[in-house]
Nucleic acid binder design. Structure first.
Length: 271
DNA sequence: CGCTGACCCTGACGGC
DNA sequence: TGCCGTCAGGGTCAGC
């Protein structure tokens, strides 16, 4: 479900409530996720204090005293903050209960999410192989330009490649390409440095705006309080196939790129 | 090495 | 009303 702005919103929302709280109990009631939930390993978290809540790519990172807890929401995962006695819903996989009877409940119908635990000095290698954060200083047009030199796949695929830049999913890839007026189908290596500069600029802009809006621009987003997103019609192209372009009124078209549907304006985003 | 497509699941939705 | 096909914002892996 969530892309980077949504995960960032959840991360910020968890910081205040969880910081310095002691985890007293982890209750797993459905351990089938992308990887089986490590029920046994989770037991050793009991009694540990939450030092910080952070994010890397779309992973939420809860730093405890001796261990780190890694949560990925996959396509359909949600976290809610409630009391432990709140009625269980379908697909509620796990509860993380804290010393003040606060409960963080993980729900994931499609089971593409992950809950992982590891010792602090034992960071999983896959975190190291991730690309750079799109909102970091390291993410520049020059960086992208350098990365695309040998890539002939469509620029949209490159934008969504987590080994290059992390956290950019189908929606924000489409949106940033629209604002940069670049066709998602263009072979990456055909982009100029100017194209890359503009694309990175628009990508950052659209991500920042979404974070400012609290990640609520998505129709399926649920906040920590369980409130659905507004879906404020702020998306220029995503989900607007067949409707007219805000810029030139041309009918927006859909094309499948690397298995993901992509909406764009062939007038504003020439090939 | 780069890239595509299949796959892991359930639920929502549109067409008939 | 119900059944069926299609699609969904992510990530991994086999195979070309």
């Amino acid at each position: 479900m969530p892309e980077l702005p949504e995960v960032e919103t959840i991360c910020r929302g968890l910081q205040q409530p969880l910081q310095q709280k002691t985890l007293t109990q982890v209750a797993v009631r459905q351990d089938q996720l992308r990887y089986k939930v490590p029920t046994v390993a989770l037991k050793r978290l009991n009694g540990q204090v939450v030092r910080s809540v952070g994010r890397r790519a779309k992973y939420l990172l809860l730093e405890l005293e001796d261990d780190n807890l890694l949560i990925h929401l996959g396509m359909s995962g949600t976290l809610r903050l409630l009391t432990p006695t709140t009625k269980i819903r379908k697909h509620d996989h796990a509860d993380f209960i804290f010393n003040d009877e606060l409960c963080m409940r993980f729900n994931d119908p499609r089971r593409f999410g992950m809950i992982l635990v590891f010792k602090k000095n034992d960071q999983p290698v896959f975190l190291d192989s991730l690309g750079i954060e799109p909102l970091s200083r390291a993410c520049t047009g020059g960086f992208l330009y350098e990365q695309i030199q040998r890539r002939k796949s469509p620029i949209k695929s490159v934008l969504m490649n987590n080994k290059i830049i992390v956290g950019v999913g189908n929606i924000y890839a489409a949106e940033s390409l629209f604002y940069a007026k670049i066709s998602p189908l263009r072979p990456a290596k055909n982009l100029s440095l100017d194209d890359c500069n503009l694309l990175v600029k628009e990508l950052k802009k659209v991500l920042r705006k979404a974070i400012q809006a609290g990640g609520t621009t998505l129709k399926d987003f649920y906040s920590l309080e369980g409130q659905p997103g507004y879906f404020t019609q702020k998306l220029a192209v995503y989900g607007r196939e067949g409707q007219s372009c805000w810029c030139c009124q041309t009918r927006l078209i859909k094309s499948v790129i690397a298995g993901r549907s992509t909406v764009f304006c062939c007038q504003c985003q020439p090939f």
